[in-house]
Design a protein around this nucleic acid. Structure first.
Lengths: 121, 121
DNA sequence: CTGTATCCTGAATGATACTG
DNA sequence: CAGTATCATTCAGGATACAG
């Protein structure tokens, strides 16, 4: 039962760390979830929907999601420019698991907060 | 379809952000996963298993997990002291979803990396 | 409108020394 | 062994200005 423990210490290969490193940032999951709620969304709408993300981080986050094939970016060569983002199938397949995690959190956050207060009392 | 979008901008209440804030740190999930692989584990064993976590962060992470009721801490009043950590049922219920996420990552990381290289080429 | 380019800050984390 | 206390560091992210 203990033999597979060493994978956790292999910083480069450890799959857990890969996920955490990739999606543990502040905005990736949130952006993905917003895009999961709509057919597509323009840059500015995303910006306003999330509210407190900076323009820079929205760009960075979207670029990374696009690079990873989780989001598709479509430029319409108009003036002023229009750019639409939509989640890909791969993105949706990830979102399924994310949603379950969020659902779990919804169900358990109250109990967790209660535990925490008791602990700090 | 677009009416529920505003929850994402409600920084305080947004469930997604709560999860991300709580578990988006560097070590919580990893520690939980290690404890999910064993019946229980002592502090030093955890330290060695993970390898590159500092003593301080291991303590902080374990305390937070304990406060949230995801990990149970048992002190054996011996000399030298022995402290054992074990995952709780609540912790396990979370771990189920984490594991699915990691499984997804295992299945998709290659494709993601391939996408990323194409994108950066 | 959809970005880029800089500079800058703070919070999370690490390093180190010390202790019951 | 299992921590705590301090100080140092880093880098993700924000603010701002500018541009096609």
């Amino acid at each position: 039962m203990e033999n597979n423990l060493e994978i956790f210490s292999h910083f480069e290969e450890c799959p857990v760390r890969k996920v955490l490193n990739r999606f543990g940032d502040k905005w990736s999951i949130l952006v993905l979830m917003v895009l999961g709620e709509v057919d597509n969304m323009r840059f500015n709408k995303l910006h306003k929907t999330i509210g407190d993300i900076s323009q820079k981080m929205l760009t960075v986050t979207l670029r990374t999601l696009e690079a990873d094939g989780l989001v598709k970016r479509t430029i319409f060569p108009e003036i002023p420019p229009r750019v639409e983002y939509e989640i890909t199938d791969r993105g949706r397949s990830l979102l399924i698991h994310i949603n379950k995690l969020v659902f779990w959190a919804d169900e358990n956050m109250d109990a967790i907060l209660e535990s925490r207060e008791k602990f700090n009392a």
